[in-house]
Each structure stands twice: as structure tokens, then as C-alpha cells.
Design a protein around this nucleic acid. Structure first.
Lengths: 201, 201
DNA sequence: CATCTAATTAGATATTCATTAAATAAGCTA
DNA sequence: TAGCTTATTTAATGAATATCTAATTAGATG
């Protein structure tokens, strides 16, 4: 996603009236006049803000006779909540130089993987120490396909190849943001979003 | 209302120069003049934008001699990417009247608190099941003052009144977004930002 | 067609905000 | 101390924008 789009998206959400509109629309579709009343502004103002929200793909419209009903574009809101974050960290990799810590982390990672996995690749047990647990989780996540979506069953089956307690590991995937779940569909998050031990404790 | 915070957060990200600054900072810390050069703006402009980003807790600063290095507040960026989304959907529930789930959740909450806390209010042990763990954490957080800031020591002392493993609980507070930490200052997040079990598993 | 309703546009105003140059402050060094 | 570097504040300017009223459009219905 381009810088312009990210800025436009955040501009759209950078106004109290528009946020209130979205909150109201989350309760169900509404037409312009009703919104105007509820918000205590003129219909013209609602039109103005609706245009902004539409440009940012945050709402959709449906016409019925004379009246136009607005509703949330649920999908877009969810899928763009992290837009800025993604842009920031993705571009950073390009800029960023490797520092010394990288090296030491790499060594730790190797040692954890050697110690917690058997020679045939199964996980002996889940590390208690957060830092090591994250390494293990990330090692598992690395073996899932990017962009691919999975059902819960598929995820369970995948994890069971490594460890019997698939429920715990599946939950930790979500908790540490290695994966993201919507309804019953699981998908890998990009590594930039993964919880990092440096920032935690 | 916490609406202000969400708006402020998005305002901070609603400017191309600020997004560029964040991208650059994601590559490592930089001082004002370097940023000004890279961005092609005056130092005064950088100061201006840095102030906005600081207000929104998106960056931190470190002073060395007379030069100030800015860096990303990684944690805050990650934990607030969904701020608007959460606010929108959370408030929608309120508008749409209480649903049946509310009732059942309330009962669960009562039972968890009865079962995991002793009669004098200490926590017997930390629940393993996420849903119950969140209830316990939220029950603890409810006993902290809103808006008040705490040092790490104070937080530790507070938690120790309930359970000896203050380090784990303190970490879980942050992990599940009940609190937010900047440098050494801890503060309660508004409940809208708290992790919700309905959305997890 | 005449009329009603809902939504949009146009024009006007006030506010917010990004930007800069110039002045000031804060901290270091010789 | 004087002098250097970096950052912040101030005041000014121009651009963007939130909001209103009044006029206009679009669609439906008599």
C-alpha cells in the first residue's frame, strides 16, 4: 500500500464526527437525515463526511427510493487497521542496517531450535521463558505458507505434526500475533507484526 | 471519552511527512537534523512533527549531549493499530442493546472470581484457560485508578498484594493491553482496548 | 405537471494545521 | 568566558477542511 493511501485512510479516521458516524453505522445501516439528527449536524455536513468515508472505502451505500442508506465496509476496516504499521515496518527493513544484536539473537535462535526440537523435527516441549517460546512459535510459523488461509482443523493438523497440545499452541499463535483469525479462517501475519521479545520484557 | 484518543492517534498518522519520519525511525534512531535533511524540511518542521508524534506516544526520545535521538515506540504502534476498529465495534454493541451473551458472560465472570480468589481477595493461581485468565486480569485492573500513572515498582507492589508472581502478571497486563507502558511509566488502558475473549477463541 | 422528500452542491466563514525564517534556549568545548 | 551545535519557540503565511445556509438535483408520488 502506498503512502498516499495510508495517509488518506488515517485522515478519514482523524475526525470525531466521522468516528461517531462509523460507530453508529456499526449498529446497522442508517440514512443521511437520521445520521444528521443523531450527530446534531446539518445534512450537508453528513454528505461531506460520507464522501470522505466513501473515498477511504470505509462505508458503502444502498439506495432505496429517495433515501440512501449507509453501512460499514466491514471487510475494509478490518483489513486496513494495520495499514500504517505495515508500511512503516516494511519500508524500514529496506532502510535498516543490521546491528550487533542481530548476531546474538541469531545464535540464541539456533540454540533454542537445537534444544527444543528432536532430530526429526518434533517439539519436545513448549518453552516457559517467553523469549524462547517466541522463537519456537516463529519457527513453526515459518513452515506455514504466506497468504494462504487455513481452517481451524487444518491448523490443528499442522500443529499436531510437531506437538500434541495443538490448542495451546494455536492460541499462542494468535496471542503473539503470528497469526490472525477472522471467524474460522486463520492466516499468517507478516513477520513485522510478530511479537518481538526485545520489546516485551 | 476515549474517542479523543483515537482521533488524536489517527491525526498523528494522517500526514505524509510524519509517516515518512516513522518509516525512517523504524530503521533505527535518528536525531532532528538528520531527519530534517532526509525529509527535505527545516529543523523547525521536524520539531513540530516530533511533538505530534510524541503526544500520540508513537515515538520516544533519548538525549545525548545536546542532540536528541528519536526512536519508534514499537510497542505502542503495534498495540494501537486496531484502536479505531475496536472502538467502533465495541460501541456498536452498546447501541444495539444487551444481547444474550452478556448475561452468560456475567455469570462466568462471577464464577471465575469466586473460584480463583480467596475470601480475602488474593489470587489462588493464574488460570490457564485464556478466557478465565482475562477475567482475572481485568478484575485486577479494575482495582487500579484510571488515568493514574505508575512506576514499575508500584505496579509490582500492587500485584504482589494478590499474587507472588508479579512479573508474569505484569507482562500479561501489557500483552493483553489492559495496561500500556512507556519507558518506565505504566498506565491503565481504557477498557475498550482490553483484549476480549469473544474475539480470541 | 406539481409537489414532496432526501441528498447534494455551491458559496461563505472560521478553524486547524504545515511550513518557514528568525529569535531564543540548552548544552557542550576550547 | 566566548563560541559552536542542536533543538525549540514564536510569529506569520498559506493551504486544507469542517461547518453552515441557501439553492439545486434526483427520485417518487399525487
Amino acid at each position: 500500500m502506498q503512502l498516499d493511501k495510508v495517509v488518506a485512510y488515517h485522515k478519514a479516521l482523524a475526525d470525531p464526527t466521522r468516528i461517531k458516524m462509523l460507530i453508529m453505522l456499526a449498529g446497522g445501516e442508517l440514512n443521511g437525515q437520521t445520521l444528521a439528527e443523531k450527530l446534531g449536524v446539518s445534512p450537508a455536513t453528513v454528505t461531506h463526511h460520507a464522501a470522505k468515508l466513501r473515498e477511504a472505502s470505509l462505508i458503502n451505500e444502498r439506495r432505496e427510493k429517495n433515501t440512501i442508506y449507509f453501512c460499514l465496509n466491514d471487510y475494509f476496516i478490518k483489513s486496513n487497521a494495520n495499514a500504517a504499521e505495515k508500511l512503516i515496518y516494511r519500508n524500514a527493513e529496506r532502510e535498516g542496517g543490521e546491528n550487533a544484536m542481530e548476531e546474538s539473537n541469531k545464535r540464541l535462535k539456533d540454540s533454542v531450535i537445537r534444544n527444543f526440537f528432536t532430530s526429526d523435527g518434533r517439539l519436545k516441549h513448549i518453552p516457559v521463558q517467553l523469549k524462547k517460546k517466541l522463537i519456537v512459535l516463529q519457527h513453526l510459523a515459518d513452515q506455514l505458507a504466506k497468504g494462504q488461509t487455513y481452517t481451524e482443523k487444518e491448523i490443528n493438523a499442522f500443529i499436531k505434526r510437531f506437538h500434541d497440545d495443538f490448542a495451546t499452541i494455536r492460541r499462542e499463535f494468535i496471542m503473539h500475533q503470528l497469526m490472525y483469525r477472522e471467524k474460522d479462517v486463520y492466516e499468517l501475519n507478516p513477520p513485522e507484526l510478530w511479537a518481538k521479545w526485545e520489546t516485551l520484557s
